[in-house]
Amino acid sequence: MPDRYVRLLHRFLETHAADPRHLEEELALDRRDDAARRLHRMKGAAATLGLQAIASEAADLEALLRQSPDGPADAHALHERTDHLAALLLALGQVVSGPGSSQGT
């Protein structure tokens, strides 16, 4: 991967790696608007970098939250999707920091 792109991926991870944990906290506190905004930012950044799986998962989670802005969305589905998003971010981190990468996290 070109060095500039790798640096952008590292910055993306620095900015968003903890987002699944923050999402869980926001959902536990019923701060759904904050969670939706966090997902929207992640979706845009991921799409800009060509990280389609992450952008798609963030978009799906955002849509799930916005489907029922005043009522509870399916809590199980939200937690399951958040876990999947965390796994995608972890996998990206492993690829970016793996053998042959030009920069560590």
Rank of each mutant, 00 (worst) to 15 (best):
F12D: 00
A45I: 14
P20H: 02
G44P: 09
H16T: 08
D83A: 12
R31P: 04
L23G: 03
E25R: 13
L65N: 05
E62Q: 05
A36G: 07
L27D: 02
H22N: 11
L90S: 13
S101H: 10
L51F: 04
G100Y: 07
P69W: 01
V6H: 08
Y5N: 09
R31K: 09
R21Y: 02
L78W: 05
E57Q: 13
R37Q: 07
H22V: 07
L8V: 06
E24C: 09
R37P: 01
E26R: 15
A53P: 04
H76K: 12
L27S: 05
L89Y: 00
A91H: 11
D83G: 13
A47E: 06
I54V: 09
G93S: 03
S68E: 11
S102A: 15
V6F: 04
Q67P: 12
L39M: 07
A77I: 15
A36P: 03
L9N: 03
D74Q: 13
S102M: 13
D19A: 07
P99G: 00
D3H: 15
A63W: 10
L88M: 07
S68F: 05
L23C: 06
L29Y: 08
G93F: 01
A73W: 01
R7T: 08
P99I: 00
R4H: 11
L49S: 05
Q94T: 13
R66C: 06
A18K: 09
A58S: 05
L90W: 10
H16Q: 09
E57N: 10
R11D: 12
H40C: 03
F12G: 00
P99F: 00
A77G: 14
L85Q: 01
A46M: 06
H76N: 14
R37L: 03
E24G: 04
E80P: 15
V96M: 04
G98A: 00
A35N: 03
A46T: 11
G98K: 00
E24Q: 12
G104R: 15
H16A: 06
A28I: 11
L88A: 08
D19E: 05
V95D: 09
S56I: 07
R4Q: 07
Q67N: 14
P72Q: 13
A36R: 03
D33C: 08
G98N: 00
L13C: 01
G71Y: 06
A86W: 02
V95A: 14
L49H: 06
R21W: 02
R21D: 04
T48D: 07
R11H: 15
D19F: 01
D74N: 15
L89M: 02
P99L: 00
A58Y: 01
G104F: 11
A28H: 09
E14G: 13
G93Y: 00
T82S: 04
A55F: 05
R4N: 09
G71P: 05
L64H: 11
Q103A: 15
V6D: 01
L29I: 09
P2E: 00
L51T: 08
L8Y: 04
L78K: 07
P2H: 01
I54T: 02
G93W: 01
